[in-house]
Amino acid sequence: MAHDLPPAIAAYVAANARLDAEGMLAAFAPRAVVLDDGGRHEGREEIKAWIRRATLDSRAVFSPKAWRDEDGRIVADGLTTSDFSGSPIRFTFRFRLEGGAIAALEIA
């Protein structure tokens, strides 16, 4: 499924599957914003810290099952498996792309 996502999102998903923080970070634009679990993470340093805390610490891997273009955003639905209680959990990732990179990501 990830192979037909836009390239920056496919790269993010592939790096996430490998738990590769640098690969995940590389998919983001320098001034990107991530909204997750009530927090706002802006810019590479904050996003890098978020990746470590939200993904690597719990070994969280998002596997998109379906995606669609919705008002200029790519909306991907799927399961996240991890070491946290209740895994797997269904999440929706909303991506906004600019210049071939992820400019914004909202996770719900």
Rank of each mutant, 00 (worst) to 15 (best):
E46W: 01
A76P: 06
A49R: 15
I107H: 03
Y12T: 12
P6T: 09
L5E: 04
A103N: 11
I9N: 02
A49Q: 14
A54P: 08
R52Y: 04
A29P: 03
E98N: 11
M24L: 15
A11P: 01
E106L: 01
R44A: 13
A14C: 09
A8D: 00
P7S: 10
A103Q: 06
L25Q: 01
G78L: 05
D4F: 08
V13A: 05
G72V: 11
Y12A: 00
G38N: 03
A21M: 06
A32L: 10
A101L: 12
T55W: 05
A60T: 11
A14E: 10
A104I: 08
D69I: 03
R52P: 08
A54K: 04
D20L: 08
G86L: 01
A76F: 01
A104W: 09
I9H: 00
L5H: 02
L56N: 01
N16V: 00
V61M: 07
E106P: 08
V33P: 05
A17C: 03
F84N: 14
F62K: 06
R59D: 14
P30F: 00
V75T: 12
I102T: 00
L5N: 06
S63T: 15
A17T: 07
L35P: 01
R59C: 10
H3V: 15
D36V: 04
I89Y: 09
V13H: 01
G86K: 04
T92F: 09
E45G: 13
A26T: 12
A21H: 01
A26Y: 05
E42P: 05
D20W: 06
I9C: 02
G100R: 07
L5R: 04
A21L: 12
D36Y: 01
E98I: 11
P88W: 02
F84S: 06
A49S: 13
A27Y: 02
A108F: 13
T80V: 13
G38W: 03
E70G: 12
D36P: 04
H3A: 13
E46I: 03
D36E: 05
Y12M: 04
R73D: 15
A27E: 02
V34K: 03
R90N: 08
A10M: 03
G99V: 07
R96T: 11
E22F: 09
E98R: 10
A49F: 09
R18P: 09
S87Y: 12
